[in-house]
Simulated scan of single mutants.
Amino acid sequence: MVDIAVDIHKALGPGLLESIYEECFCYELEKRKIPFSRQQSVDIFYDNLVIQKGLRIDILVDDLVVIELKAQETIHPIWSAQLLSYLKLTNKRLGYILNFHVPLMKNGIKRIIL
């Protein structure tokens, strides 16, 4: 998945809307026949409360890897906390933050493993 992000970034560069990078990322997954779901809604369970569609994951790859796409100039530490929460709430172990608004894509990639 990192290679997909790098290829997209090389072709388009930084400064576009997150939705454009998401569209391209999903296109590349389809080309490679990698299963994924886009804008996956997830219910949140707290005690006896169910919050339907409490969060939305940008891309869930092969029902295993959570991908959060960003296109922001300022990298926010809360993104890591957000992804960590998403992993815990979905019982997934691997996630990536891919921020396309950087001069070099390698500087916009953050991997989190539970």
Score class of each variant (00 low, 15 high):
residue 70 K to P: 00
residue 111 R to D: 02
residue 56 R to D: 09
residue 99 N to M: 05
residue 8 I to N: 00
residue 55 L to K: 01
residue 97 I to A: 07
residue 63 D to M: 09
residue 96 Y to G: 13
residue 15 G to I: 14
residue 68 E to W: 12
residue 43 D to H: 09
residue 93 R to C: 05
residue 73 E to L: 13
residue 67 I to V: 12
residue 90 T to Q: 09
residue 99 N to A: 04
residue 41 S to N: 14
residue 3 D to R: 05
residue 76 H to G: 00
residue 35 P to V: 04
residue 54 G to W: 01
residue 40 Q to V: 14
residue 70 K to D: 05
residue 74 T to P: 00
residue 33 K to C: 06
residue 46 Y to M: 01
residue 90 T to I: 05
residue 34 I to W: 15
residue 50 V to L: 03
residue 107 N to T: 14
residue 63 D to P: 04
residue 60 L to C: 08
residue 56 R to G: 03
residue 63 D to Y: 10
residue 33 K to E: 12
residue 74 T to Q: 13
residue 10 K to H: 15
residue 95 G to M: 07
residue 75 I to R: 04
residue 55 L to N: 00
residue 112 I to P: 02
residue 17 L to R: 11
residue 89 L to E: 12
residue 91 N to L: 09
residue 24 C to R: 15
residue 105 M to E: 07
residue 35 P to L: 02
residue 44 I to D: 06
residue 18 E to K: 13
residue 55 L to Y: 15
residue 49 L to R: 09
residue 86 Y to M: 10
residue 58 D to T: 13
residue 79 W to Q: 02
residue 68 E to V: 08
residue 9 H to A: 06
residue 18 E to Q: 13
residue 74 T to K: 14
residue 107 N to A: 13
residue 86 Y to E: 13
residue 4 I to Q: 07
residue 47 D to F: 01
residue 59 I to H: 03
residue 92 K to Y: 00
residue 25 F to N: 04
residue 91 N to P: 07
residue 82 Q to L: 01
residue 81 A to Y: 06
residue 28 E to I: 01
residue 51 I to E: 13
residue 65 V to I: 15
residue 9 H to D: 04
residue 7 D to H: 08
residue 18 E to G: 11
residue 38 R to V: 11
residue 69 L to N: 03
residue 46 Y to P: 01
residue 20 I to R: 06
residue 57 I to A: 04
residue 56 R to N: 05
residue 84 L to E: 08
residue 7 D to R: 14
residue 2 V to H: 07
residue 20 I to K: 08
residue 65 V to T: 14
residue 1 M to E: 08
residue 73 E to Y: 03
residue 111 R to I: 07
residue 42 V to P: 03
residue 111 R to Q: 11
residue 89 L to N: 11
residue 49 L to Q: 06
residue 90 T to P: 07
residue 52 Q to E: 14
residue 15 G to Q: 12
residue 109 I to P: 12
residue 56 R to M: 09
residue 47 D to K: 14
residue 27 Y to T: 10
residue 88 K to V: 06
residue 92 K to M: 08
residue 39 Q to T: 03
residue 41 S to E: 11
residue 39 Q to Y: 06
residue 36 F to D: 13
residue 79 W to I: 01
residue 105 M to V: 10
residue 83 L to I: 02
residue 24 C to G: 00
residue 103 P to D: 13
residue 10 K to A: 09
residue 24 C to A: 15
residue 29 L to Y: 10
residue 66 V to L: 12
residue 37 S to C: 12
residue 97 I to T: 05
residue 89 L to F: 10
residue 111 R to M: 04
residue 50 V to S: 10
residue 28 E to K: 11
residue 56 R to Q: 08
residue 21 Y to S: 02
residue 55 L to S: 00
residue 60 L to R: 07
residue 114 L to E: 06
residue 17 L to V: 04
residue 39 Q to P: 07
residue 68 E to K: 09
residue 37 S to P: 14
residue 19 S to E: 08
residue 25 F to R: 05
residue 48 N to G: 05
residue 24 C to Y: 15
residue 94 L to Y: 00
residue 113 I to R: 11
residue 67 I to K: 02
residue 40 Q to A: 12
residue 107 N to I: 03
residue 4 I to L: 06
residue 14 P to N: 07
residue 34 I to D: 02
residue 28 E to H: 15
residue 86 Y to F: 10
residue 48 N to C: 01
residue 31 K to D: 05
residue 99 N to K: 10
residue 82 Q to D: 08
residue 22 E to G: 12
residue 42 V to T: 08
residue 65 V to N: 11
residue 81 A to S: 12
residue 13 G to W: 09
residue 43 D to V: 03
residue 51 I to D: 11
residue 64 L to E: 15
residue 104 L to N: 15
